[in-house]
């Protein structure tokens, strides 16, 4: 079964419940699916389409627009080396070449043991710390060849398991809105008046 499992369906309902329109939960739910399976399966897309009230084709369209969603299995660790300008100025290409040699794959490929997928990616918002990379979206800054080797070793040996979860897990801390604090979701078509704290004039809330 690569649809969302029971626990994730509960989570999915909670997430959908935060939005005025279920469709808005599409991307968060795709993340949930990717966390569950490591990548996005067709069944998961169809399931999410059911949950948010879209067609599978529409969810597929959304899914393929965004780079983080992988339609095929990738390595346990996705190593993303930034090659945009700031990192390129500081030697990102050499780092990619080194990583390719070290892992024995070309950027875009996955090692035969399924541990690493190497990607050349665009700016990661760490430009002052170039060249930088992310492993499953956890940063390593100002990386040189030796540090990269060490890092890959540590990952392979499981030394960084506490810091870097397997691919698909983005945030380990999730928002949860306590029921007694939640304001009801404001559906766009149901509300036509100003919120109560917006007095016509003068007084404060």
């Amino acid at each position: 079964m690569t649809r969302l499992n029971d626990a994730n369906q509960v989570l999915a309902r909670e997430i959908i419940g935060r939005y005025p329109k279920a469709r808005s939960a599409t991307i968060p739910l795709l993340h949930v699916a990717q966390q569950q399976n490591g990548y996005i399966t067709q069944e998961a897309i169809a399931h999410i389409a059911e949950l948010v009230g879209a067609t599978s084709a529409e969810v597929l369209g959304t899914c393929t627009f965004y780079e983080m969603f992988k339609m095929h299995p990738v390595g346990k660790y996705l190593i993303n080396i930034c090659t945009t300008m700031s990192c390129a100025l500081m030697g990102a290409e050499q780092l990619v070449t080194h990583a390719e040699q070290r892992l024995g794959i070309k950027a875009g490929g996955t090692t035969p043991d399924g541990l690493f997928t190497l990607e050349r990616v665009e700016c990661q918002a760490a430009c002052t710390e170039a060249p930088c990379l992310q492993a499953n979206y956890r940063y390593r800054y100002r990386v040189n060849a030796a540090q990269l080797d060490q890092f890959l070793d540590d990952l392979a040996e499981g030394q960084l398991d506490a810091e870097i979860p397997a691919h698909g897990v983005v945030a380990r801390v999730r928002q949860s809105i306590p029921v007694d604090r939640a304001v009801s979701v404001v559906a766009p078509d149901d509300v036509h008046e100003a919120p109560v704290w917006m007095p016509l004039s003068g007084t404060t809330a």
Binding site: A46, T55, S56, L60, G61, F65
Partner: peptide, 16 residues
């Protein structure tokens, strides 16, 4: 049942 998929210069029309 038909939708754009992928992005930019790789955008195409697909069905699920």
């Amino acid at each position: 049942l038909i939708s754009f998929s992928y992005r930019g210069n790789e955008t195409q029309i697909t069905t699920f």
